[in-house]
Amino acid sequence: MNTAMVEAQGVRKSFGSTEILKGITLKIDRGSVTCLIGPSGSGKTTFLRCINHLEKVDAGRLYVDQQLVGYAERNGKLYEMKERQTARSRRAAGMVFQRFNLFPHMTVLENIVEAPIRVLGRPRSEVTVEAQTLLDRVGLGNRGGAYPQELSGGQQQRVAIARALAMKPKLMLFDEPTSALDPELVGEVLDVMKSLAEAGMTMVVVTHELAFARQVADQVVFMDQGVVVESGPPAEVLGNPKHERTQAFLSKVL
């Protein structure tokens, strides 16, 4: 009964003549937390962007919530989606970026209510109340009127999480959410992510925080050079890696 939230079947992606993703096959269960680890340049970001269709998949199939991403399947043929449809299907996933990417010209509150109002067409009053609840949830209830640049990196990233949640996504994608943060600010962001996981959100997290992966992840996926080398529960992949590339990577990170 528990159908996968994300299902990748041989997903390939090239930039120009270089193939970055060389056939990724992966299943992500509803309500689970998946941590993607791997050396820089292995294609983790690219894969995450494919899930959200910020990059187009070249070959293979990628399903999010049982919907084929970026294509419509009719009469045994795949039809590329129009930009408008793509934008619509993107709402299924919320995304949090390494460099926060808050809208600098809007206040914290405006950042959060912007898409629900303009994209979903929901009433401002209703959305504002929800936004306030979200801000309270990430511990920034009193900073709604601030501009992003007035906040610390950790606070900005928490706003970015609240902004993504305001669209009520079915899953959340995190691309190295703590890599741009000063060490003392990493904890506050990871805490928000932990509480989100406890609340049952489906999460895909690209991270180098192995302690977080060990504690929170249901599944750890090790990627290298565009392929999934090894995946499984954290105790296996992190505690007892079978593949030598995984072992080499972990010995470098630790």
Partner: peptide, 8 residues
């Protein structure tokens, strides 16, 4: 990226 990810 951020705007597109929000469906804009």
């Amino acid at each position: 990226d951020a705007a597109r990810a929000l469906g804009m």
